[in-house]
């Protein structure tokens, strides 16, 4: 893997006593689609929130273009954020604004462009995600899949270098999911964006990933190309790919203690 744009070094974070990320180190290459996969609760969304700078780790470094965003000042962080886009799980649209206002918001706040230019750019982004004609709808008036696409239009409004997706296809029907995958591939091809997607949808991973990073219980257990992932022998990766349930070892004493609330 060459030319990493993001390097995460030994990231540790915890909620109270629970270690959510436990020494995570990984590289994200420029111009590729990196998928961070893993079952629910493995810490992948937490990792994403660290990459965007929404959360601060207990220890470790996150190097973006060689500069550590953990120790960076808020002001610099805000400047960096204008060059990256994030699509949140539920779209993250501002519910009090129409779709057009949502998409044009970053342009209005961060650029000196004329209103007419902003309008045209807004329509272009909405057209790209197939929502032309819905400019004056409020987020509450459209479906979940459309919200995600509108959120994507806003995320790419500033033509970011890096695009982050939190569960891009979760909760979407198979057809809409496939369309979302196509859209992500199109963005990579036409705009040469670096894309980081957090997901647990197998079909989506197989469709879009160039590079796969598997997390389990806050640790990176596998990192490699999609081809290598599909033939990986690691039992946890295999279980994930083959959709096998984890082995539950039945221990009668443990069960008894758990349900009575007593500890040994």
């Amino acid at each position: 893997m060459t030319d990493p744009i993001i390097q995460v070094l030994d990231l540790v974070t915890s909620y109270g006593d629970l270690k959510v990320l436990d020494g995570v180190s990984l590289d994200i290459s420029r111009g590729l689609i990196t998928v961070v996969a893993g079952s629910s609760g493995c810490g992948k969304t937490t990792l994403l929130r660290h990459l965007i700078g929404l959360l601060k780790p207990v220890s470790g470094q996150i190097l973006l273009g060689g500069r550590d965003i953990v120790t960076m000042s808020e002001k610099e962080l805000y400047r960096i954020r204008t060059r990256q886009g994030v699509l949140f799980q539920s779209g993250g649209l501002l519910n009090s604004m129409t779709l057009a206002e949502n998409v044009s918001l970053p342009l209005k706040e961060h650029t000196e462009l004329e209103d007419s230019t902003i309008q045209i750019m807004t329509r272009m982004k909405l057209e790209l995600v197939g929502l032309l004609g819905f400019e004056n709808f409020l987020p509450s008036q459209i479906s979940g899949g459309m919200k995600k696409r509108a959120g994507l239009a806003r995320a790419i409004a500033m033509d970011p270098e890096i695009l982050y997706f939190d569960e891009p296809t979760a909760g979407l029907d198979p057809v809409t999911s496939a369309e979302m995958d196509q859209l992500i591939l199109k963005l990579k091809k036409t705009f040469k964006m670096t894309i980081v997607a957090v997901t647990h949808e197998l079909s989506s991973i197989k469709n879009i990933a160039d590079w796969v990073i598997m997390l389990d219980q806050g640790r990176v257990i596998f990192s490699g190309t999609l081809q290598k992932t599909l033939v990986c022998e690691n039992p946890i990766v295999r279980r994930f790919l083959d959709r096998k349930p984890g082995q539950v070892v039945y221990d009668s004493q443990k069960y008894l203690n758990a349900i009575t609330g007593m500890s040994l």
Partner: peptide, 17 residues
């Protein structure tokens, strides 16, 4: 309610304080 629906996070992620 904006915090609950990730709207505040979305603002921060867009670089808006």
């Amino acid at each position: 309610s904006m915090k609950v629906t990730e709207e505040v996070d979305a603002l921060v992620a867009m670089g808006l304080n």
